[in-house]
Write a protein that binds this DNA or RNA. Structure first.
Lengths: 171, 171
DNA sequence: CAGGACGGTCTGCTGACCAGACCGGATTGA
DNA sequence: TCAATCCGGTCTGGTCAGCAGACCGTCCTG
C-alpha cells in the first residue's frame, strides 16, 4: 500500500476501513456513485478534481472491489459492487453529522423511503416501517439547507431534482 | 482552510463533514477519544504517528469544537465535546463496514449495551431495547477477529480489557 | 476522413507528511 | 536546592502526494 495511506499496527477495523476509503476524494466519489454518477467525465465535472487523482482513486476502488468497471455502449462505467453499496450506512451517518454541524438551516438533502414516502430519521431508519431501508429503496431531494446559489451545469441540475438513490444519471 | 483539505463548490454535508474530520489520522484520533485516550503522549504512543501532525490535528479539532482542551493536574487533556460525541454513529458504521470487509474471522471489537448486557447489531441498535444507545451506555471488548499478536505496551493492553466507552483511560 | 468527445497519462510545481532533533516548563528525586 | 526526567509541544530537512494543465490514443459521428 502506498506510503501515507496505511495505518500500520492498528488492529482496528476503522483503520482498515480508512485504508480503503480514507484518502482525499474517495468518499465523495462513492457518494456520487450512490447518486447515479458512473462516467469518468461526470465524476470529473461534478467533483471538480484533478484527472490524475480521479483515475488513481477509481483504479484503487476497482482493485479493492468497491467498484466494478463495466463497458456500456463503448463507454467505461464505474458501478458500485455489493461491498461498495454496504458503505451506505457509514456515508449516511457522516452526512447527517455534517448536516447537524455545518447546516443551521436544516439538512442539505433529505432521504425518504420510497415504498411509503416517509422521510428517514437521523439514524437512517424509516419511522413508518421501523426498519433501516437499503439505499435502493430511498428517494433523495434537496432540503431547506441546500445552497441558494446552486451550480448550473447539467450534472448538478439533474442531481437536484428528486430522484431514486443508485439510479443511473444517464439512461 | 488549508489547501488540500477543502472541497470547494460542494453543496454537500458529506463534503463539509470531511473538511472537518477527513484528514489523515483525524478519525483515528477521535476513535481513541471515545476509547478514553485524553493525553498527547497517549495518542502518540497508541497511534504511532508524527508529533507535528498530532499537534496540528488536535489544534484543528479544538478549533472546530469537536474537542475541548482541559487541564487536569497540570496535564493537558483533550476531551470530546457534544459535537464530537455526535460523531459516534458515523464512526461505528465505518467500523462495522471495516469489520465486514477486512475481518473474515468476525468483528475485531464488540460493543454491548451496558444497561442490559446485549450485543449491538450492525446498525448500532440494541436488539433488547429496540433503540440506538448513545456511546456512554456502551461497553466494548475484543471480538474473535482481534489480532492474535497484540501490541504489548500498557496503552494497548488497557484498551483490550472490557471497558466502558468514553471512560477515561487514566484515573 | 476530419473533428470532437472520451478516458485517460505525463510533467513540473507546491504543499502536506514524515522521522527525528530540539526546547521550555513542571514535577520528581537526591 | 539542584539535577534529571517527563510532558507537550515546535522546528528542520527530505520525501511523497495532489494540483493544473498539456498531451495522447481510441472511438464515434457528420
Amino acid at each position: 500500500m502506498a506510503l501515507g495511506t496505511d495505518y500500520a499496527n492498528q488492529d482496528c477495523s476503522l483503520a482498515k476501513a480508512l485504508e480503503l476509503v480514507g484518502e482525499r476524494w474517495t468518499l465523495l466519489i462513492l457518494r456520487d456513485c450512490f447518486f447515479g454518477v458512473r462516467r469518468f467525465s461526470d465524476f470529473l465535472t461534478h467533483l471538480d478534481m484533478s484527472k490524475a487523482v480521479l483515475s488513481q482513486r477509481l483504479s484503487r476502488l476497482v482493485e479493492s472491489g468497491l467498484l466494478e468497471r463495466a463497458r456500456s455502449g463503448g463507454r467505461e462505467e464505474y458501478v458500485l459492487t455489493e461491498s461498495g453499496r454496504a458503505l451506505w450506512p457509514a456515508l449516511y451517518a457522516l452526512t447527517q453529522w455534517g448536516d447537524a454541524q455545518t447546516s443551521p438551516g436544516g439538512p442539505r438533502r433529505i432521504f425518504a423511503h420510497a415504498q411509503c414516502g416517509t422521510d428517514l430519521v437521523v439514524t437512517g431508519s424509516c419511522p413508518a416501517c421501523g426498519r433501516v431501508p437499503p439505499p435502493e429503496e430511498l428517494e433523495m431531494r434537496p432540503g431547506p439547507g441546500s445552497s441558494a446559489q446552486p451550480r448550473a451545469h447539467p450534472m448538478s441540475v439533474a442531481l437536484r431534482s428528486p430522484r431514486r438513490v443508485l439510479e443511473p444519471l444517464r439512461p
